[in-house]
Write a protein that binds this DNA or RNA. Structure first.
Lengths: 348, 348
DNA sequence: CTGAAAGCGCTAACAG
DNA sequence: CTGTTAGCGCTTTCAG
């Protein structure tokens, strides 16, 4: 990377500098094993010296694959916030791709588009970009028209990131079960703003877990439809003020957990001794709070990165040439235990 | 768009179907004026019928421009949250680009990379992608090595999105001035977690505004270094409890504004009659709160989209061919007035 | 206004 | 193991 000059330097220049043919250079940059160690060394040196970088466009055109992945997502309606943690997906996906020499392109589907329109839009992008793989982000995995477009002209590798709920254990249920295992019976649940359907689903999981353990807290300590922080504060206060109160609270959102933490503090309740806390959404702020608050790990970003890796691996394998791709990183545990968690107190 | 089949259909197919040469088709899809209306119509019809979409790679290779824009940003260190509203940038940038047939690629620069390493990384990407333009997101605009890379081999059009602070009126100052204009003197300021340097800068603006108006509130009602919601709640409570209290509060973060709103409610203060509120960060939740909270509009996404548009327009103009690009959308006002704002009460 | 020719940088086939 | 020969689909340049 000495010269770092990238534009204008072609495979031809490298071939000349290394005194080999273009093909040999091509083989080297494509990790073909059929190159002598010596030639390979010369080529690699020339590449480094010249600062050669293969052109994506040329590779794509010559049939070597575009080395482009396309992530398709539903654009939020104006004024709405996206249903996906787009920033985290961008970060994890991009790094997964770039580690393997791939690039990731995000394609929004207009929020009000019909399935047919969405399919047409995707088809156009597919034709223009010719990605090596496509990831359908939720809830697009369910749209049949889109999947069809990926099969029709030429089958394109496709990964579908389903809603977490399809894969992950129901977060509400997981959290509740953990708390129940710690002996808690009076477990509260506070929903957050966001996709109401998701909330309903998670809440149902929580209710299920509690019911199975004979707790009735889910009849009393459930705050449904709590959009903002003021409401959460009110709710927490009304729950924690009386003598009969929850010994543990689950919140869907990180800021809600923080709010509960504050109310507890104001009421002289010690965390976790008097009250255990779990947030269903993780956030750096939960690490810094006093005490730190346990949270469920959202695997969306990890699974997205994994999907990218699979897509890339698929093409690499199909190409036949072996390239030492690092193993996908180990999965993170579901629940990140932090100081906000402890056994239920003896007295109810 | 009848067939929507995109792959495999080339300019050649269209030319045949329209009974013209490839060139004429090329001229049509590039909006060249030198085509007879009749030929143009035939071509356009053929394109629609066949579902033809020009290949980016081929266009790029033939020298027609890659129709790719590259947005370079500093990746946050692991565990940190990004300094930029990446999701909003992605949304606005992507839509600005796709409206003109362009695509946007995000390139993270490793957080611990030296300027030289960053430059090498950018050079590599430049060589591979050959974008028609590059946007350097803050704080990368200041890195000389990066700008140099964009000049050296072949000058690449570049827009630099500077920190808001460089362009926008200091948000802390703006908000304070608005409040002062409304007659407020006791104006409080609550920082939020995030870039401490930014906080310092905004806070300084607030202080300046107050000092120029002879208020001393900035000596008493400033909560610096308030990382989380619990702390904000404590702070708001301690300010609003006494008889001598601020008549207006500025918060850097939306959730902090919501927290203050709650505390005020608990203390039976009516908003905005007893307390005016401005958040320096806007958020949909501020619309839904009771009452809605005024906020400063963050122009980052708009300016990013505008930068993309400029880059595209530059290349289009250079190409010489006229394409009717819509005028960039009108700028949004700085301060979004909402119900949380009113004149200061007569009594101090 | 239209067409023909040439080539962008690379990789898939084939030979050697 | 290496080199040669063809294009990929499009745009440029140059002729009509």
């Amino acid at each position: 990377m000495q010269e770092a000059a990238a534009r204008g330097i072609t495979i031809e220049d490298v071939a000349k500098a290394a005194a080999v043919s273009r093909q040999t250079v091509s083989r080297v940059i494509n990790y073909s094993p059929r190159v002598s160690a010596e030639a390979k060394a010369r080529v690699e040196q020339a590449i480094a010296r010249l600062g050669y970088v293969p052109s994506l466009a040329a590779r794509s055109m010559a049939g070597g694959g575009s080395r482009l992945l396309l992530a398709v997502f539903a654009a939020p309606a104006p004024g709405e916030s996206p249903a996906l943690p787009l920033d985290r997906l961008l970060l994890s996906g991009t790094s997964a791709c770039s580690a393997r020499g791939y690039r990731l392109l995000f394609e929004p589907i207009a929020p009000n588009a019909s399935p047919a329109q969405a399919a047409a839009q995707l088809a156009a992008t597919l034709g223009a970009v010719q990605p090596d793989g496509v990831i359908l982000l939720p809830p697009l995995g369910k749209v049949a028209d889109l999947r069809e477009v990926l099969e029709k002209p030429r089958r394109i590798a496709c990964e579908t990131l389903r809603d977490n709920d399809d894969t992950r254990k129901n977060p509400g249920e997981s959290a509740a079960q953990r708390l129940l295992a710690l002996g808690h019976r009076q477990v509260g649940y506070i929903t957050g703003p966001g996709d109401p359907e998701r909330s309903r689903h998670w809440l149902a999981g929580y209710r299920r877990a509690l019911a199975q353990n004979g707790s009735r807290a889910h009849r009393y300590f459930v705050a449904d439809d709590q959009p903002d922080i003021p409401a959460v504060l009110d709710c927490a206060h009304s729950w924690l003020m009386p003598t009969i109160r929850p010994t543990a609270i689950i919140t869907e959102r990180a800021d809600a957990a923080l709010a509960v933490l504050h109310v507890a503090g104001a009421l002289k309740l010690r965390i976790p001794r008097d009250l255990s806390l779990i947030s269903l959404e993780d956030d750096p702020a939960l690490t810094r709070s006093q005490p730190a608050i346990a949270a469920l790990h959202d695997p969306a970003a990890d699974r997205f990165a994994a999907a990218c890796e699979r897509l890339i691996a698929a093409r690499t394998a199909a190409g036949g040439d072996a390239i030492g791709a690092e193993a996908p990183s180990a999965p993170t545990p579901d629940l990140i235990e932090r100081a906000s968690l402890t056994r239920a107190p003896r007295t109810i």
